[in-house]
Design a protein around this nucleic acid. Structure first.
Lengths: 218, 218
DNA sequence: ACACTATTCCATGAAACATTGGAGGATGCG
DNA sequence: CGCATCCTCCAATGTTTCATGGAATAGTGT
């Protein structure tokens, strides 16, 4: 043990996992998979990739051990290999945002002006338990179905404008989406504010909720 | 906000950090830097790299925001940009070990037979406080000087055989080194056992100690 | 100003990776 | 059984990364 060959082998094996995280497309796939399992075709269209390209990226992730598969008829569903993978992705994202100026700039450009106030998870749970707020899941209905915050109702962002009357006018709304780097809740809060509804967003989203093993309704 | 161009820019910026983690040599450099700051030349020899090659890898890490530099005379010292970087490295290592069979095999081959029993950090702190054990830091003296567990004494592995008489024969020794993937404490415990000394190792090491913000003596 | 040290920058060839189209394998359905 | 669907495997292309040696740079000491 301890000889240089084994050492290089070990670090190269760790690097295989690092390499898997070294492509924007693959990170986008992980981001999607953190919301629930998906078929290859679904992932390809959601990430704007060719089918074979998407499959190749998924193979890379699978060889690194970050994702697992399940066969259902002719379809193959991919999912994250475990909650630790979500934690790794979240930490990579946070370290990049904190240490890398370019990443921070790209995040701000993507999420839009940071004008929407946010509450954290503990605060949301307290206010939900007290009946002071309504939690609205603005992700696609499919992701809501795969798991959501207990008590939340589903109104995908695309339907929010027309379904806004479903929300009581006198109760504050807390909108949430995929995670801290997801744009959906930002846009939802802006839209609600434009309609004169009191709304704030959850500071992060399902990714972090799931990572921290908080209760999930399905 | 929210348009595909910004989204791709964001994920590519995150991928720059991922790419930095996608080379065995760079992970080795991070592993060394987790023990304290080092000059370029020192890192190059410790990692078995050419000077210019090492410098190039360090530039990659610096552009990703994972390391920072400090000038001292003619030398430039590199260090991790923050404790979150150590946490990211540790999590990458743990996820790889748990999810990737190749990485797990390489780790076992490098660390040797898992015959040495280990105590965790809480247990060590309890026994140290009670005066039941002696903690021995078997890393190079330089790394001990850069920061070590309070109360530990320094006996680098290379000097352990000749300095074994410095240890009282009737008190159990807990050896520790860089981290869970460092071979030094494994070898130290085997060597001590060969000399009939009661010894166990700390399950991980300074990397995790530092990551979890436990008290450090310098 | 001069030489000296430590490090970075640059150019180059070799190796690895991403993307794409087409062939092939597994599953389900009529 | 034959066909359709969904996905993976394979081969070929252009792009990116890696390692290395020589030149250039910033700071130090005389």
């Amino acid at each position: 043990m301890g000889d240089p060959t084994n050492k290089a082998t070990l670090f190269d094996a760790l690097a295989r996992v690092g390499k898997a995280l070294g492509s924007g497309k693959r990170l986008e796939l992980l981001d999607l998979l953190a919301q629930g399992e998906r078929s290859v075709e679904h992932l390809a269209t959601a990430a704007g990739l060719g089918l074979t390209t998407c499959s190749a990226h998924l193979q890379t992730l699978r060889q690194a051990g970050l994702v697992a598969t399940r066969r259902d008829g002719t379809k193959i569903h991919y999912r994250l290999a475990g909650p630790d993978v979500a934690a790794l992705y979240a930490l990579l994202r946070d370290v990049a945002g904190a240490r890398n100026a370019e990443a921070a700039a790209a995040r701000d450009a993507y999420l839009g002006p940071a004008d929407t106030e946010a509450v954290d998870r503990d605060e949301l749970r307290r206010r939900l338990a007290a009946g002071q707020v309504i939690a609205v899941d603005v992700r696609p209905a499919e992701e809501y179905a795969a798991g959501h915050i207990p008590g939340a109702i589903s109104i995908p962002l695309g339907e929010l404008a027309e379904r806004i009357t479903e929300l009581p006018a006198d109760v504050e709304v807390v909108a949430y989406c995929r995670g801290a780097y997801c744009v959906l809740s930002h846009e939802a809060v802006r839209l609600l504010a434009d309609h004169g509804r009191p709304a704030v967003r959850l500071a992060d989203g399902m990714l972090e909720w799931h990572r921290d093993q908080l209760p999930i309704a399905a």
